[in-house]
Simulated scan of single mutants.
Amino acid sequence: MPYDVAALRSQFPALDTGIAYFDGPGGTQTPRAVGAAVAATLTGPLSNRGVTGLSQRNADGAVGAFRAAYADLLGVPAAGIVYGRSATQLTYDFSRALGRTWAAGDEVVVSRLDHDCNVRPWVQAAERAGAVVRWIDFDPATSEVDPASVAAAVTARTRLVAVTGASNLIGTRPAIPAIAAAAHAVGALVYVDGVHLAAHAFIDVPAMGADLFVCSPYKLLGPHCGVLAAAPSLLETLHPDKLRPATDAVPERFELGTLPYEVMAGATAAVDFIAAIAPGSATDRRERLRLSWDAVEVHETRLLSLLEAGLEELDVVVHSRAAVRTPTLLVTLPGRRTWDAFEFLAARDVLAPAGSFYAYEPWRRLAVPGDEHGLRLGLAPYTDGSDIDRVLTGLRAFMA
């Protein structure tokens, strides 16, 4: 059955504004069903978790449904799903828990391709422990990670390798299984920032070799929060700071304070929404998710080809060049400020933000001359051909 983008778009109230959204890498628009789930849970009855009263059971059910949904989305047991306020918060929490097990002379590997949320927490934790920081590099000319850089960075003293599943700036998808194999060969853990990857691809955390994988539901049609996935047996070995009366059970030991049940319900609804994108007879939600992501990938790849063909006719530089990447392009305009292009497009109801998007290391590595920002064009499941036409028409007008 063909991808029915018109039917999909009809379920997003934000699209009724007429704005063409290319800011999905920073946060997607939200379908009506997600907002309804948040409202229905919040207006209750709702109270702290328990099994006695209806309001308690509603809260407990929201937590259980959330864990089951993200277990299906990411391919780990429900007991390996940790809720967090954001991917940044979760990464800081786990960097502190892991960092206290490191000693002087240990080594931590981070990547020049990553968003700063998967760099700075590990660098700071290494500094506190007296550990050495090593770097995986990428080639700005090709957007590809250099395998030799991985081989040089990972040594017998490596304790952890932190790497992105896909760059939020230029879309590059490094070969995570190969990087993970190198890390595991020396007994190191692998922490994957999957925030950008999980918005475009079917995820199997164990298959990719990630020991810890973090993502953000608000980048995949859900509300603002973060999710970490890991094997429960690994979580059992980590001991975060927590309140004395708080449970020590996994995964609850990592979730501080009362959970936002309404946000968790919205995040669950986002998974169910994605699972329904590709209609079919499959009853298993994980299988439905696989089919839906396959359909989304075909749709986004087709639109990306149209966008790239149109950009080739303009005097722009496209920095997203990796052979395997997400439908996300970073563009600069020689002799022109991309911030001016962002404002010009926004006046035409085309939202294509300019910036470095917290991707401090890759932006600095690209060393773009004469501009402080890049224009990021990110596709989402609800992007359609008219959006592509509008952003290309707007850029032609700006360049003229």
Rank of each mutant, 00 (worst) to 15 (best):
V391K: 03
A103V: 05
L189A: 09
F273G: 09
D389F: 00
L379M: 08
D114I: 00
L8C: 02
D193V: 00
R337S: 13
G50N: 10
L306I: 03
A267F: 06
L303T: 02
T164Y: 12
A6P: 05
M208I: 15
L42Y: 11
R57W: 06
A14L: 02
I274R: 12
A68S: 15
L330Q: 10
D284W: 09
F273S: 11
A104H: 11
R134T: 06
E312F: 00
R96G: 14
F94I: 12
H373G: 04
R67E: 09
M208C: 14
T158K: 09
T172N: 12
R134H: 04
T142F: 07
L238D: 06
A62T: 06
R157K: 13
A78F: 07
A65E: 15
G394F: 00
V51H: 11
V263L: 10
S95H: 12
L351V: 00
A153H: 12
R286Y: 03
A178I: 02
V133R: 14
R96Y: 11
E144I: 04
V108D: 14
L303Y: 01
R337V: 02
D248R: 01
R100T: 11
E372I: 01
F254V: 00
V154C: 11
V296A: 09
T17G: 10
T17I: 04
A346Y: 04
T172Y: 07
D204Y: 08
A352N: 11
L333E: 14
G194T: 05
G335R: 13
Q89P: 05
H224L: 01
G194H: 10
E372S: 08
E252L: 00
A282N: 14
G99I: 06
S320E: 13
V133T: 12
R390G: 06
A65N: 15
V317N: 12
G266W: 04
Q56S: 10
A367D: 15
L330S: 15
H200M: 01
G355F: 08
Q89A: 12
A188V: 06
M1L: 12
D349P: 03
L303M: 08
A323I: 03
P240V: 00
A79M: 01
Y382D: 09
P140L: 05
S281C: 02
S111R: 10
L375R: 14
V391M: 00
E255F: 00
T28K: 09
G355M: 03
A270M: 10
E287I: 01
V317W: 05
A229T: 08
A278D: 09
N58K: 04
E252A: 00
A153L: 07
R288F: 05
L234Q: 06
D16M: 02
F344G: 04
G171C: 07
D72I: 01
I176V: 15
R112H: 14
P25E: 06
S216M: 06
L73C: 08
E372D: 10
L379T: 08
D389N: 02
P45A: 02
A278S: 13
